[in-house]
């Protein structure tokens, strides 16, 4: 059983919420080559980044590589991050997600994926596959936002975002027409966006 490290007081799941440590400040110092600041940044965000990566990649060894690659990219690119223009966490997670999806895809290129398994476990994984999923009060908000999606929207969005599938694959997995998967993913994300806007 993995125990959660304390992650400060960051409770608000919204990407720009004032998370415990000053992520923007840490990124800024990192950009000037301050490795100690980057270490702090890592400590503050590694669980979020790695959690996302594992959800997508699944394989632990590979996930660790991807998380490392993501942090290296963050290190290299933080010189170009402008805290006045955005949320550090959303920026970092965007990098990590792309890395994770790239890894899943390239793995797939060399070996066919067990599609059936992915589908049948898609529901369960939500609750139980990770050793430890910390649920915090403020995250109720995100959960409610996700709950505002229709089942079909949520299914499509999760297969795409967490499953790392293309919309074409999502359509095949759900047995729906191509255009429908594309629409569900978009509509689902739009509803998520709008719900987060109004309920905060």
């Amino acid at each position: 059983m993995v125990h959660m490290a304390a992650v400060g007081d960051e409770g608000d799941p919204s990407p720009t919420a004032a998370v415990g440590p000053d992520l923007a400040g840490l990124l800024g110092r990192s950009a000037r080559g301050d490795e100690a600041a980057f270490a702090e940044l890592y400590d503050a965000t590694a669980a979020r980044v790695h959690g996302l990566v594992v959800r997508v990649v699944r394989d632990r060894a590979q996930s660790e590589e991807v998380t490392q690659e993501a942090f290296l990219d963050i290190w290299r690119h933080c010189t170009r991050f402008d805290s006045s223009k955005g949320s550090p966490l959303a920026w970092m997670l965007t990098i990590a997600h792309r890395k994770a999806v790239d890894r899943v895809r390239s793995a797939e290129a060399s070996k066919a994926r067990e599609v059936t398994y992915e589908v049948t476990t898609a529901e369960r994984e939500h609750d139980s596959t990770l050793e430890k999923v910390e649920v915090r009060l403020d995250q109720e908000r995100v959960r409610r936002a996700l709950a505002s999606l229709t089942d079909t929207q949520r299914g499509a969005v999760e297969l795409a975002y967490l499953g790392g599938h293309t919309h074409t694959e999502v359509a095949a997995l759900l047995g729906i027409p191509l255009g429908t998967a594309k629409t569900r993913i978009r509509d689902g994300l739009i509803r998520l966006r709008d719900t987060l806007e109004v309920t905060a």
């Binding site: 995250q139 995100v142 996700l146 967490l162 998520l192 987060l196």
Partner: peptide
């Protein structure tokens, strides 16, 4: 980016 907010 919020989808995986509950996963650490």
């Amino acid at each position: 980016a919020t989808i995986a907010a509950d996963v650490e």
